[in-house]
Design a protein around this nucleic acid. Structure first.
Lengths: 246, 246
DNA sequence: GAGTGGTCTAGACCACGAC
DNA sequence: TCGTGGTCTAGACCACTCT
């Protein structure tokens, strides 16, 4: 069951190695997202370590967002982020802090094309491999607010390429999980400032050259691979973001 | 020495109460910023608890940024943030990621006035109490890049009101500590977009109505009190910020 | 070598959640 | 009532830092 307790730290603590072993088992799909893993006492017995040691290992994975503890119930594999977090960057009329409504999603276009050099790199694909590119408009109460370009690596998201986008959900990440088995675990957003070109302005019902925020996102699955590139544009004057330092 | 081990958890764990007790002793100034606190084993003996318990208490304060552990040396009271972090929002010519230069600081004006209602609230002052308001221009290589308005509650920062701003440092936070005994421990920044008015544009050598990023900062001391309000404006096209989700 | 924080053990009991 | 994670103990030994 174990093969873990090699003589002595080859460069890591025991709980560090345990964490890696458990992470591997999760990545392998031994427990699906949302499922419980065995109790701490069980794991401690199986691996032949003290309870405190297994708890430290689990704490690492909890910090990492892979696991969640629930007192009295058990330790669960994270279900992934829902993607609604894009809204935290924007505040729209009648949408005061706290009240977060999911905007309606409308797919404008969907097409296959060859990956660019950069895309092949971040997706770890061979040069010239195919990607699926989506254009998407998100609206609140019929008012367009966000314009997105989404790029997905192809073998993985093949189910979406063959599917009719009219039946798609307003949130993509839960759909990635259902249809493609891809769990989004982390995202990294880079914010900058730009101006809308003619096409973008028309879609968002704003003037050409209107100031916009540019959110460039990389989304990663539970194994840490980048599986989505997304560019979002929205009215700069609806933008608000809060950050803490230390 | 203790008086901590009351019969039973009145609403908190033992390590939670220990953390609060230690936090109070730090706030009281028993150990200055940058100083070591007693060893874990010593604290455990003094409070009459096990080593693991005191370690949990210390971990809370470490997470909170009040303490820092250094293996083999001891546990130290945090010295506070240096304030140079404002630059992480902006990228200027010749300033690639990583290379962080502190811009030169020039105080444009300094005056006393009555606190606004909001200022009195966030500073926990009585209505009509005095504040010190600074206008400040920050430049890289003689090129103006950031324009700041800084508001400080008055009894606390009296030493700055009486001082000649020509001798001030480029970084204010270390100066707050030296001259006023105020350690900045946390900051919270809110980002949004705006446009420069005539005065602001002139100072930054940009056109009127030029798009700008607005950074509204609240800075807190080690006791968690807000002790500075700062508004910073900079060229929107020089803005770049990265954020992680989960 | 002496002192510090970091890891690990093997137990005990408590608080929460579901049945 | 039972199983879960959360707290706490009293030890042991390891790894880092300074002198």
């Amino acid at each position: 069951m174990s093969t873990l307790l090699t003589d002595h730290t080859p460069g890591q603590s025991r709980y560090g190695k345990l964490a890696q072993a458990l992470r591997d088992r999760i990545l392998q799909g031994e427990w699906a997202p949302g499922e419980v893993i065995p109790a701490e006492s069980t794991l401690a017995q199986n691996y032949g370590v003290a309870l405190g040691t297994i708890r430290q290992a689990l704490s690492l994975l909890v910090e990492d967002g892979v696991l969640q503890r629930r007192h009295g119930k058990g330790t669960f594999v994270t279900k992934g982020v829902d993607g609604a977090s894009m809204m935290r960057f924007f505040r729209f009329r009648g949408l005061d802090d706290g009240a977060s409504t999911t905007p309606h999603s409308h797919i404008l276009s969907s097409r296959l094309r060859a990956a660019s050099v950069r895309e092949a790199q971040v997706f770890s694909m061979s040069q010239g491999a195919q990607v699926l590119q989506l254009e998407r408009l998100r609206s609140l109460d019929t008012e367009p607010c966000l314009l997105e370009t989404i790029v997905l690596p192809l073998p993985l998201f093949g189910a979406l390429a063959d599917s009719d986008s009219h039946g798609w959900d307003d949130l993509l990440y839960p759909m990635y999980q259902e249809r493609c088995g891809v769990v989004i675990q982390k995202t990294q957003d880079t914010l900058s400032f730009s101006q809308l070109n003619a096409t973008q302005a028309k879609r968002l019902k704003l003037a050409v050259s209107h100031p916009c925020v540019l959110v460039e996102r990389q989304a990663f699955d539970i194994a840490g691979r980048c599986v989505e590139l997304r560019t979002t544009r929205g009215d700069a004057f609806s933008f608000k973001y809060t950050a803490q330092v230390q």
